[in-house]
Amino acid sequence: MSFLSPELVERIHSRAADVDRENVFPRDDLADLRDAGYLTAFVPAEFGGGGLTAEELCAEQTRLAEAAPATALGINMHHIIVGLGRHLVASGVESGRQILEGAMAGEIYAFGISEPGNDRVLFGSTCTAVPDTSGGYAFSGLKVFTSLSPVWTTLLTYAQDDSEPDGPLSVFALIDRDDPGVSIKDDWDTLGMRGTQSQSTLLRGAHAPRHRILQRVAPGPSTEPVVFGIFSYFEVFLAATYLGIGNRAIAVAAEKVKTRRSVLHDDVYANDPDIRWRLAGAAVRMNSATAEVTLLARDLDEGRDRGNLWYPQLSAAKNAAAEASIYAVDQAIRATGGSSYSNSNELSRLYRDALAGLFQPSDQESLHGAWANVVLGPRT
């Protein structure tokens, strides 16, 4: 089942350049996606949703990113949190039900995990969570890259509780947008992915009551449902989104070189062996990354046990997709010539959007650190 008709994809694509140029949130895209049922596509059927598998949603996200990368990346964060709800419920953590029920009721979820300068990302927060007598928490600190900032209704976030005698705990919770302790900065003016409008979110004692606390766990990588649920869906859906950028870049370049002519050879560049090699090489990289992401999504759907390789392999898939997309756009630009250097050229926008993949977790330093531990064991 597909929620993204060709007509819907084309409408979204027709707006992408204006969204990027004007540095605004794509509200018309959101309205169209909501009308198509896409915001509940990943909610299980027993909760009233579309019931797509992770593998199916990855394919949808790739198609959406081919049309408008920033729109896909923003909506991606909502889907990740729905995925977390699925994983919590499947793992017997009843607090996850409210995520799925909220999505069906029209909630739009935002991803409030990243913090400035914190390279532990999901595995230890620099923000604070102070417990109250009713079992809730007050959250304080700065969260960055909060996609969907103009429209989200509920924030998934976490912070550290230092009050426990046996050591700190990471507290994961849902916070309502209208809480007086929540403020959103107008600070999104970036090189690419401009339509995500991923403003910073400042928490000053923002309150999550007891029923909005998802889990309290020890910091660090773990098999705890809240940690693995966030990490796994973040990596595969992010990877799927970047696949769309690379695919689109190759498609744009392929059409261009079929009409761009060489004066020297008196022929179209599509017949030039060097140009054919460039675009074929990009397609090979994209093919390999797609296979990697698809297999991981399928294993998540089937609940396969990859043991201690889950985290490094998820990180590897995200990096493979991000790097392949950057390579594909680079080769597409080289193949199509100087016209792609213009801001009005779609390849210029795709290039800027693809670069965002360098900064999103897991970055290459984290990836190689994880795999060094797999190959060599922990540092002594």
Rank of each mutant, 00 (worst) to 15 (best):
D162F: 02
V375S: 14
P44R: 04
P361W: 02
T126M: 03
R260W: 03
G50V: 00
H87D: 09
V217S: 01
S163N: 04
A31L: 03
K318I: 04
R21Q: 08
L367I: 10
H211I: 11
V374K: 11
L33T: 12
E255A: 06
G357F: 09
L142R: 15
L350D: 12
R298N: 05
S163Y: 01
S348H: 14
Y351A: 09
T157M: 05
A159K: 03
P6F: 06
A253Y: 02
W277E: 09
L279G: 01
K256N: 02
G141A: 10
L347K: 09
G205M: 03
V375P: 14
F172L: 07
G307D: 14
I213Y: 12
H207Q: 10
G48T: 10
A282I: 01
V226Y: 06
N373R: 15
S147Q: 02
H87F: 15
S344L: 11
V24R: 15
M1K: 10
D186N: 13
L350M: 06
L73W: 15
I108N: 00
A54I: 06
N247Q: 11
G124R: 01
F231H: 14
V89M: 12
P165Y: 01
N118Q: 02
R261C: 04
L300C: 04
L295S: 10
L4F: 07
T146R: 02
E60D: 10
H78N: 15
V130T: 15
A218F: 05
G124E: 03
A65D: 13
T259Q: 05
V171S: 10
E56R: 03
Q61T: 09
G83Y: 13
P131C: 11
R216N: 03
A324T: 00
D272N: 14
D28S: 11
P221G: 01
N23M: 06
G83M: 10
G220N: 08
N287T: 12
G135I: 14
A280P: 01
G136Y: 15
V43P: 00
A283I: 01
G167V: 08
N343E: 12
